[in-house]
């Protein structure tokens, strides 16, 4: 188990290194460049700016210097928001996104697993049809449609929740539901399909033959096995949710981190982009690794030392 986890961890680290290096290269080689907004710069001025932002010299050297700084925890200064370091910007916005994402994660995972399991238990009857049509519809609509629709019904119509803002717990509910809907739907579909397969297995027939109540068969016996595909999806799911969503943030007026992913690219703010991607990738790697461990614990059939 130890050897498997170590090799897995190393390969995840390699992916992290490649993704970040590739992003840096893309940002440095894409036309326009970080200084194209300031017009009419002479070659001399551009060079001075490059020196200031440590972007002079050959590309491999630039990449290496960025890595040197990043490994020491210095993500450099934002190239657009003057006087702010990337670390400061992320430190302000990430807690907001983490809070929202964590609530959405719990909603999506629990809602999806329960809905999927129930749908599979009543396969081809109306609970299944209803849940799966609902899930497909949730996947077919973008969050910037479900968001305003939720606002229209629950904030403007019923007046249960505020329209937007970020000051208290009641501001958390609509955005986290909105964020959770498509992911929850995906989890439900995964769960349903895997549960349907597991319910056809021999050990389930045995459990039923023993006279166990159906509820116990599904939630005690089948769920343990059927949840495995869902577990492996939870890593990317959490990474995506915790880093925020630009759409939900702009619909509900939330000062989260998702906006920085988009604005850093549009503003050609390379270091903020690198910081945001680094956060996402580190989260993804850590969570995927965690998922691997959970997977090992849940499924003893996996040969860990291959």
């Amino acid at each position: 188990m130890g050897r498997f986890l170590i090799s897995r961890f190393l390969s995840l680290l390699a992916v992290l290194a490649v993704v970040l290096t590739l992003t840096f290269i893309l940002f440095r080689t894409s036309p326009g460049g970080p200084f194209s907004f300031e017009r009419d710069l002479t070659a001399q001025q551009i060079h001075e700016k490059e020196v200031k932002y440590k972007l002079d010299g050959p590309l491999p050297v630039q990449v290496a210097r960025w890595w040197g700084d990043a490994l020491r925890g210095d993500f450099r200064e934002s190239m657009k928001s003057k006087n702010f370091t990337v670390a400061e910007i992320l430190r302000q916005s990430l807690p907001v996104s983490f809070t929202l994402g964590a609530v959405a994660f719990v909603l999506a995972a629990s809602g999806g697993i329960i809905a999927g399991a129930l749908a599979a238990a009543r396969k081809n009857h109306w609970p299944d049809r209803l849940a799966m049509t609902g899930a497909l519809l949730a996947i077919s609509l973008p969050t910037f449609v479900t968001g305003p629709l939720l606002v229209l019904v629950f904030a403007l119509g019923l007046r249960w929740f505020p329209v937007g803002g970020w000051t208290g717990l009641h501001h958390l509910i609509l955005p986290s539901i909105c964020l959770a809907i498509p992911y929850g739907a995906y989890v439900a579909r995964l769960m349903r399909n895997s549960m349907v397969e597991v319910l056809g297995a021999d050990f389930i027939r045995t459990a039923r033959a023993k006279g166990l109540p159906e509820r116990k068969v599904i939630f005690r016996h089948a769920l343990k096995v059927a949840i495995l595909p869902v577990v492996s999806y939870l890593g990317p799911l959490a990474a995506g949710l915790l880093t925020g969503s630009v759409v939900v943030e702009s619909v509900f007026g939330i000062p989260g981190a998702g906006q920085h992913f988009v604005s850093s690219i549009l503003n050609k703010d390379g270091f903020l982009l690198m910081g945001a991607v680094a956060v996402y990738c580190v989260l993804l790697v850590v969570l995927n690794f965690f998922v691997d461990i959970v997977y090992c614990v849940l499924d003893r059939r996996i040969k860990l030392y291959e």
Binding site: L16, L22, L26, S30, L266, L273, V277
Partner: peptide, 23 residues
């Protein structure tokens, strides 16, 4: 393919679009 999966897709398409519109 694994590496591209690990990249946030939104980011990748935004970089591509901003890189391609000029040329």
């Amino acid at each position: 393919v694994d590496v591209l999966y690990a990249n946030p897709r939104v980011l990748f398409v935004l970089i591509l679009i901003s890189a391609l519109s000029g040329p």
